[in-house]
Amino acid sequence: MLSKHLESNVVFSKRVSSWEEAIKVASEPLLNKDFINQSYVRDMIENVHKYGPYIVIMPGVAMPHARNEGGVIKTGISFLKLDTPVLFPEEKEVGIVIVLAAEDSSGHMDLLSDLSSLLIEEDIKYKLENAQSEEEIINLIKMVE
């Protein structure tokens, strides 16, 4: 499931100027495919401004998302890997940004479940952090699916 969703949705970047930028870059694949529109990107950034970096779900990994208030057209997920981590508020270093766009509150559960299995394993998380290509990442995911 997850591996399919991530196909051609993985972005690599050397560095970004700010965490806002990181969210924008990570959203690009979903924007290009019309899964989400600009307002959703704004909402995700706004959320962090409002509530703090709670979307940093574990050290090094951020999962920006927001309520779907018309900004999500289709459930999807995209993945940004940064060579140089970016700082989120409260000095949180993030190297992996996973944009989650959920059409409703249930349709994406198996995606999250896979994602959770992926991140829960220390060594897989480590490999993710050091992956160099989309193929590598997709293969890692297939291992746990």
Binding site: Y51, H65, R67, N68, L100, A102, S105, H108, M109
Partner: peptide, 15 residues
């Protein structure tokens, strides 16, 4: 719990 009730909280719950 989280703000949207679909993202981080879901991630936490499933984990």
């Amino acid at each position: 719990a989280c703000d949207a009730g679909a993202g981080s909280s879901a991630m936490g719950a499933t984990t």
